[in-house]
C-alpha cells in the first residue's frame, strides 16, 4: 500500500506561521481571557489547515478529525476554561516569573532551536511545506515554555494545550494525520486530561485559596 501523496501548498505554511503567532500571543498577552481566545483562534487555524489538507490529499478521514477539532478544541475546551475561570473567580492578570520582553526573547531562542534541530531533516523534504515541522516543534516548545514561566494553574493548562496543538499540526502537516482510531484516542485523552486538570484547579482553589501554584511547594527535599 505504497501511496505517495504530496500536498504542496503555500497556504499551509502561512497557516503554520499564523499558528506560531497565536502561540506567541500567549506569551505576550497579559490577560488570561486573551490567552484562552488565542487558544481558540489557534485551534481554529488548525482546523482550517486540517480541512485544507483533507481536501488536497483526498484522505477523507481527516475531515472527521477536522470536525472533532472544531467541536472539542474550538468550542468545548475554551468554554470549559472560561467556565473554570468564572467558577474559580480568578483575577484576570497573567503572572509570570519572567518579564514579557525576556519571555519573548526566550521564545525566539526556542524557535531557533527548533529550526536548528530539524535542519538536517528539512533539507531532504521535497515539499514546499518546509516550515511545518520546525514550526510545529516551535509551537510545542513555546507552549512548554509558557508552562514554565506562568504562575497560575490555568495558564499551565493553556501551555499544555499549546503543546498539543503543535503536535496535531505536526501530525497533520507531515504525515497527514494519524490513523483515525489513534486520533480519536488522543482527542479523548486530551479532553479527559483537561477536565481532570480543571477539577484540580478547582480543588486547589478550594484548599489553598489561590491557584497560584507557586504555593505548591510543600513537597520538597
Amino acid at each position: 500500500m505504497k501511496q505517495h501523496i504530496i500536498v504542496n501548498s503555500q497556504t499551509i505554511d502561512v497557516l503554520a506561521v499564523m499558528m506560531l503567532i497565536a502561540t506567541i500571543l500567549h506569551i505576550s498577552t497579559g490577560r488570561l481571557t486573551t490567552c484562552v481566545w488565542a487558544y481558540a483562534i489557534r485551534s481554529f487555524i488548525l482546523a482550517c489547515a486540517s480541512g485544507i489538507i483533507a481536501y488536497l490529499s483526498g484522505i477523507y478521514h481527516i475531515f472527521i478529525t477536522t470536525g472533532i477539532t472544531l467541536v472539542i478544541k474550538v468550542v468545548i475546551i475554551p468554554w470549559f476554561l472560561f467556565y473554570i475561570i468564572k467558577k474559580v473567580g480568578i483575577k484576570k492578570e497573567v503572572e509570570s516569573f519572567l518579564s514579557f520582553t525576556l519571555s519573548l526573547l526566550c521564545s525566539c531562542g526556542v524557535i531557533l532551536v527548533a529550526y536548528y534541530a530539524t535542519e538536517p531533516i528539512i533539507q531532504f523534504e521535497s515539499t514546499l511545506m518546509k516550515h511545518c515541522l520546525p514550526i510545529s516543534i516551535a509551537i510545542t516548545l513555546v507552549g512548554f515554555f509558557t508552562m514554565i514561566t506562568r504562575k497560575k494553574a490555568i495558564t499551565q493548562i493553556l501551555g499544555l494545550l499549546a503543546m498539543e496543538d503543535g503536535l496535531f499540526f505536526a501530525a497533520l502537516s507531515t504525515s497527514y494525520g494519524m490513523p483515525l482510531i489513534v486520533e480519536l484516542g488522543v482527542f479523548f485523552d486530551i479532553l479527559v486530561s483537561v477536565i481532570i486538570m480543571g477539577i484540580y484547579v478547582y480543588r486547589i482553589k478550594e484548599t489553598f485559596e489561590s491557584i497560584d501554584i507557586g504555593f505548591l511547594k510543600e513537597l520538597r527535599e
Binding site: 516569573f97 526556542v110 532551536v113 527548533a114 536548528y116 534541530a117 516548545l141 512548554f144 515554555f145 508552562m147 514554565i148 514561566t149 504562575k151 499551565q156 501554584i213 507557586g214 505548591l216 511547594k217 510543600e218 513537597l219 520538597r220 527535599e221
Partner: peptide, 21 residues
C-alpha cells in the same frame, strides 16, 4: 528538588533543548 513544578518543568525543558542541540 525545590518543590516548584515550574522548576521541574524547566529541567525537562532544558534536557530537551540541550539534547536537540
Amino acid at each position: 528538588h525545590t518543590g516548584s513544578v515550574h522548576i521541574y518543568l524547566v529541567y525537562i525543558f532544558i534536557t530537551l533543548i540541550i539534547s536537540m542541540l
